[in-house]
Amino acid sequence: MSAKITPIIELLQKQFSDIDFAPAPLLEMKDKSAEQWCVHVQPSKLFAVMSFLRSDERCSFEQLSDLAGVDYLNFPKAKDRYGIVYSLLSLSKEHRLWVKVFVNDPNPEVPSVVSIWYGATWMEREVWDMFGVRFSDHPDLRRILTWESFEAHPLRKDYPLTGRGEREDFKVITRDSA
């Protein structure tokens, strides 16, 4: 880990002194000013940290440019099962930050950030659909990509690629019934 951390992370550490952010650059680069940083947050503290990042005028991350889920099953040196990655962008201050949250089975759940960035609605629905990570206080947590009667979460690593027979479970139209 390089010694220098960004002003944003210094600010975070000052504001939330009880959280170990474990800041690290996504990629070590020769030009230290070009490095992009990632911090780790516990699910219980996530909403407070995110609210701070959005509302504090020195951070002012107006945009949640991406929200993705990761399944770390069978991943080398991974301690937790699921990771949620938030990719933040400040258009006015021209900086970026990545925030990672880890959750585990059973009942993986993180607080929803829809009340901070409304654009998170569909992204959180997608993560719920694909990984089965619940977002508490989400206004409309339905499946978004798979169909309604689908029960599994297909991007989990222990889900077989060809499914568990869901694709055959459907009404057949014959020439008689049409």
């Binding site: 991943f75 991974a78 937790d80 222990d158 077989p160 027979g165």
Partner: peptide, 27 residues
């Protein structure tokens, strides 16, 4: 009438792949 014509084959292929979960990995 199309009812009297031939029907589709109606083949169904069941999944055969099972994913192996290593012991103790990733909980």
């Amino acid at each position: 009438h199309s009812k009297e014509r031939e029907r589709g084959m109606g083949l169904v292929v069941q999944p055969t792949v099972q994913v192996k979960v290593e012991k103790g990995a990733g909980k």
